[in-house]
Simulated assay, not measured.
Amino acid sequence: MKWITNFLKAIAEFFSRKKPEPQIPQKPSEPVNQTPTVPAPEPKPKFKMHEFKKGQIGVDISHHNRRVDLELLAKNVDFIYMKATEGESFVSSKYVERAKKLKEMGTVAWGAYHYYRTNKGPAVQAEHFIKYVDVESGLPPVLDIEAINNNFKPHHRKDLQIFLNLVESKTKIRPIIYTGYYFAKDEFKPTEEFAKYKLWLPWYTSDFGRVKTPKPWDKITIWQYTEHGTIKGVDGNVDINRVV
């Protein structure tokens, strides 16, 4: 009789099973509005080098120009150069303050120049200058080599090349050379390797037709035509330059 018992038990279990509830179709969920992905903009260059164009006017100032309104000056010139350093350790007292201000303004191209001393090491001078060159200022760094009382020696040309190579290597910007015609002709006597650098030449006259270009250059980029100029933003005389 045991099989009858098991048979009845199996029938009872079958009928006691809970029938699954019918599944109610779910309404598709509404699509979630998503903001379309916008491609990230191309990164902009941190700075743009100033393009020298004929007729542009610029000034060069130093600590000797004690009272300068940079905001007013920037409205009246196309570029501003400032003396940054000299020799192995000198820093122009107004340079750091003015450089910071010009960078904050961002309204005019500006740059730095180094007054070179032939009795000091070229590499040390270059490293000293580089510390104060802002590659985002818009203007190339400048080597200022001027009259040195007939004390220029042939080996000084090699020293200048060391200085220029170091500055260009560290800043990735080719420097400009500032020098006078007669100094270049009679003392500096630059070789052809210097011709690749743009020339900034002082010659104080109102007639550019009278200005001579020293060898090996075949053109002048910046002409400093007066050291007694007047311009809004600078109290007193100031060097004024023109791109030619």
Rank of each mutant, 00 (worst) to 15 (best):
1 M>N: 13
5 T>H: 13
5 T>D: 06
6 N>H: 13
7 F>P: 02
8 L>C: 15
9 K>F: 11
11 I>G: 11
11 I>R: 14
13 E>P: 14
15 F>Q: 11
21 E>P: 08
23 Q>C: 04
23 Q>F: 09
24 I>K: 12
30 E>K: 11
38 V>S: 14
44 K>M: 12
44 K>G: 04
45 P>F: 04
54 K>W: 08
56 Q>D: 04
56 Q>N: 05
56 Q>H: 05
57 I>G: 02
60 D>G: 02
61 I>D: 03
63 H>C: 12
64 H>V: 12
69 D>F: 08
70 L>C: 02
71 E>P: 01
73 L>D: 00
76 N>P: 09
81 Y>M: 03
87 G>K: 04
89 S>N: 13
89 S>G: 08
90 F>D: 01
92 S>G: 03
94 K>D: 02
97 E>L: 12
97 E>P: 00
98 R>G: 05
101 K>C: 03
103 K>C: 03
103 K>A: 05
108 V>P: 05
108 V>S: 03
111 G>F: 11
113 Y>N: 01
116 Y>H: 06
116 Y>A: 02
116 Y>K: 07
117 R>V: 09
118 T>Y: 14
119 N>Q: 09
120 K>A: 05
121 G>K: 15
124 V>M: 09
124 V>H: 09
126 A>N: 08
126 A>L: 13
128 H>R: 05
137 S>K: 14
139 L>P: 08
141 P>S: 08
141 P>L: 07
143 L>N: 12
147 A>I: 09
147 A>H: 11
148 I>C: 10
149 N>V: 01
149 N>P: 02
151 N>Q: 13
153 K>N: 03
154 P>C: 04
156 H>C: 02
156 H>Q: 03
158 K>F: 00
160 L>D: 00
164 L>W: 06
166 L>P: 02
168 E>F: 01
169 S>Y: 04
175 P>T: 10
178 Y>M: 09
178 Y>A: 12
179 T>D: 08
184 A>F: 10
184 A>G: 13
185 K>P: 07
186 D>C: 03
188 F>T: 05
189 K>L: 02
189 K>Q: 01
190 P>L: 07
195 A>F: 06
198 K>W: 05
198 K>V: 02
201 L>G: 10
201 L>I: 15
206 S>P: 07
206 S>G: 01
208 F>R: 15
209 G>A: 03
211 V>L: 04
211 V>E: 05
212 K>S: 14
214 P>I: 04
218 D>P: 06
222 I>G: 10
225 Y>M: 06
225 Y>F: 15
228 H>Y: 12
229 G>M: 05
232 K>P: 15
232 K>Y: 13
235 D>N: 14
235 D>C: 07
238 V>F: 10
242 R>Y: 06
